[in-house]
Each structure stands twice: as C-alpha cells, then as structure tokens.
Design a protein around this nucleic acid. Structure first.
Length: 250
DNA sequence: CCATTAAATTCAA
DNA sequence: TTGAATTTAATGG
C-alpha cells in the first residue's frame, strides 16, 4: 500500500485528470457503447468529471438544467419533495445510468434532486454538446430513446404498485427490487439503505417500514443487522406478493 | 407523531 | 484498531 504513495501524490494534485471515455471500463454507459459510432467526438473532451462524496447532493430541485449526468461509479438516489416536505424517491441509479434526463429537451429547471448514496464519480455533458451528438448519430439517439422508453415503463409500473398494493406489499416489493437491481453480498443486500429511504421509495413512513421489517423478521422472511438486510429465501418473499405479482423491472 | 432506549456507524487518535 | 461521539433502529405511548 505504501509503495503506491508516490503515484497517489502525483495524481493527487488539485485538478484531478478527467477520465477518458477511451479507457473507461463502464460498458453499460451509452456513450462508451457508441464510441465507435460517434462522429464528432469533441463533446467527449468537453465533459466534466465530478466526484461526489457520500451524501452529497449534486442536483437541487429548481436549479436550471444545463446538461446530463452519466454515472461512472457509485449509486445515487433521485427524489422529489412533496407538499408536506415528504420525500418521494423516484429511482435508484447505478453506474451506466443517466440522471437528469427528464428535463433534457424542454424543461428549464430540475423538478428532482439527486444525492450520492456512496462516493460516486459522474460524467457531466452539456446540453448543447449532447444535442448535437444526438442529431448527428442515429444509433446513439436510438439507444437514448430506448433508455427513455424503459424509464417511462418503470415509472408507470411504480405508479401501479403504489396505487394498488398494500403497504406491506410495497415494502416487500421494494426489497425484491433492491435485490434484483443491486444483488447480494455475503448474505445481505448489496445496497445499504436507511429505513427512511425504504419508506420514501415505497411511499410510506419510516415507522411503518420498521414495524413491517420486524414482522418479516419474526416470520423468517428477512434478516436484519442494522442497515444490512438479508433475504434467506427469495421465493418465500416473492410469494408474499404473488397474488398481484409483477414487480418492477430492474 | 414524539420520546426513550438500544444498537450501529462514523471518526479521529 | 479501538472506543467515544454521533446517527439510526425499534418500541411504546
């Protein structure tokens, strides 16, 4: 570890070097995927690399939209603040996904906020550069369109789950969703979330989630150690909402 | 919803 | 690596 210190010092200068798309290992990124198709690469040189510490908010509701964030590393939550000040988590996004896309074309101001749940690295592209790239590259535009369609689909599924499922089912559905999207690490969900965050996603309150978690523990459907939640038998948990079924897609 | 206690996580030495 | 300080979980009113 200590023999790397000279390299760290060299790279640790005030201005961190931009990650070049050419060397990026994130194959889920739509830009990386289309790198060969992109005719004018100038916008890639214009991108800004932004580092976010855990808990740092990088999109504020009401701020003007100037570009799009692509997640290079880390997990991020996107939320909207309701009238009573209650937070509704719209989605969780991980590497390769795009943030702030809904306000891209017409919206002038963000209607959502975004906070890094872990230390994150974001690639930020300006609206103008991206617009030009989309106009010039049909394949890239098509992939972006698929992304938008997919997001809309998920959003519609979520409306359905919130309006038609019981609180208990929504909490279970959220657990299954996190499991599907982020997987498990040594027996626990690979994304630590507070009970309040579960509540904000499932559209309920922190207390409800805590009480439902306690019940689920008694029933042996989940295990919990602090923020780490384990699912001993995925099928058993799925059965709890199988009547309505159709959980959201990853 | 709030208050209290138990538990877990963070942080700095 | 440890434990003190801070944050979060759990429960009952």
């Amino acid at each position: 570890m200590s023999n790397l210190s000279s390299i760290v010092l060299r790279n640790n200068r005030k201005v961190a070097p931009n990650f070049s798309c050419d060397f990026c290992s994130n194959l889920n990124c739509l830009i990386k995927k289309n790198l060969d198709n992109l005719t004018s690469l100038s916008f890639i040189d214009d991108k800004k690399t932004i580092r976010c510490k855990k808990g740092q908010q990088f999109i504020i509701e009401g701020a003007p939209v100037n570009g799009l964030f692509f997640i290079l590393k880390g997990v991020v939550k996107v939320f909207r603040t309701g009238i009573n000040g209650r937070e509704q988590i719209v989605r969780f996004a991980k590497e390769g996904e795009i943030i702030g896309h809904r306000g891209f074309g017409t919206e002038e101001y963000y209607t959502i906020g975004a906070i890094a749940l872990q230390d994150a690295v974001l690639c930020y592209f300006s609206k103008d550069d991206l617009q030009q790239a989309l106009l010039e590259n049909p394949k890239f535009a098509y992939d972006m369109m698929l992304f938008y369609a997919n997001e809309l689909n998920k959003s519609e599924s979520k409306v359905k789950s919130i309006s038609q499922m019981t609180v208990r089912e929504r909490v279970i559905d959220t657990l299954l969703f996190i499991n599907r999207k982020f997987g498990e690490l040594r027996g626990f969900l690979n994304l630590p979330l507070s009970r309040k965050e579960y509540a904000d996603y499932a559209g309920t309150t922190e207390e409800q989630v805590i009480r439902i978690f306690s019940l689920l523990k008694k029933e042996g459907l989940i295990t919990a150690r602090g923020k780490k939640i384990g699912i001993p038998d995925l099928q058993n948990l799925k059965n709890e909402i199988s009547e309505h079924h159709f959980y959201l897609d990853s």
